[in-house]
Design a protein around this nucleic acid. Structure first.
Lengths: 192, 192
DNA sequence: CTTGGCCAGTCAACAAGGCTGACATAAAAT
DNA sequence: ATTTTATGTCAGCCTTGTTGACTGGCCAAG
């Protein structure tokens, strides 16, 4: 879904079944470590691959959520509360980058359904510190397992170097303001 | 600040159910080409990075769309019609993986606004073959340019090998049924 | 040739989950 | 005492997903 105007030829690299585009390296711009000759078509491919891969990855979670009557918004809440037990509503708001009204609607449901606990903060009593109930954790883990199956297979097939490149590029795509905080969260082991 | 309605969040996924065990589990499996120690935490990182990177990548397109009063669904239509001029509604439906009713609403708007042309098929008169008007193409290119700026910077910084790995992993994440068709579209130079 | 089945596309109605704005309250900060 | 911060909530709108019912073209069997 995201476009990119095209340019010229490409050279199909080939790695997976059909291919994956090998950036042609030619004498052109040297940029730090690599000689990358980036055509618009190559950039477009990156954007389109993100669209399709993301779309299919999410479908794994959707299947589990569907049976419980929840949507993706519920999953996002559950996931991050699981990753950062005791986080405040504001923390969650910033992580998700949505408005508090949107979040609150979903959060209220999860608390009512007994998947999330909302406790008044000890230090700052205005805050509501969020944690998962055992039932909430069970659901999160069920969804995770479904998604991990896909990731594990792909990572195995692609190999360690490809996985490293994958993570490097994705990290670079995150908005600079806030990238550090996001990467800190992602890299945090958390209480698993 | 973001008009995004049907956004799609990714979902965080994460470990299997090892419960409160520190993720130091490395069942050293060697697998063909690489030594990959895939802990649940590593898989979770992949899923979370997809969520954040996708979210921020899309925001580039959102900014352009916002000013015209369109949403992501409009962009997806315009993009793929641009990539495959003359495609039928059914073709587009399959590419986007949404219901035809959802698509039709958006498509109707774009036709009314003069961004897309809908022509009765010559061979099968039930079909409506879609193409972009010059105005539609202008919009698509504007959005592409915005997204390409991000991708170009990231690809440059990451280097050719990382980009290769990135594309390999994403290709592998696409659902197997239909993966070939998707990769064929992605790799098609089209009439850019 | 007509009729019934199937397929492409359209229209109608509803739900999820984004958004903004206005307000209320409690607690912390000044 | 006043202001700021953290949170919750109501109302209302928009995009975009869904299911169901319907139109009209294509085609093949009777």
């Amino acid at each position: 879904m995201r476009p990119a105007p095209g340019a010229k030829p490409a050279d199909p690299g080939a790695r997976t079944s059909t291919e994956s585009v090998r950036p042609s390296r030619r004498a052109g711009l040297t940029r730090g470590d690599q000689l990358l000759f980036l055509t618009d078509a190559q950039l477009r491919q990156g954007v389109e691959l993100m669209f399709f891969a993301y779309r299919d990855m999410i479908s794994d979670a959707d299947k589990v959520l569907e049976s419980r009557g929840y949507g993706r918004a519920h999953h996002r809440c559950l996931h991050f509360v699981w990753r950062r037990p005791g986080m405040s509503v504001t923390d969650l708001l910033e992580t998700l980058a949505v408005t508090k009204q949107s979040l609150n609607r979903v959060l209220r449901q999860l608390v009512e359904d007994g998947l999330i606990l909302s406790a008044v903060g000890a230090a700052d009593r205005r805050q509501r510190l969020l944690t998962l109930t055992p039932e909430g954790e069970t659901l999160v883990r069920t969804i995770s397992d479904a998604q991990n199956a896909r990731m594990r297979r792909v990572f195995m097939e692609a190999g360690a170097d490809a996985v490293q490149g994958f993570k490097t590029v994705l990290a670079g795509m995150i908005d600079e303001g806030g990238r550090e905080a996001v990467l800190a969260l992602v890299n945090d082991q958390g209480p698993s």
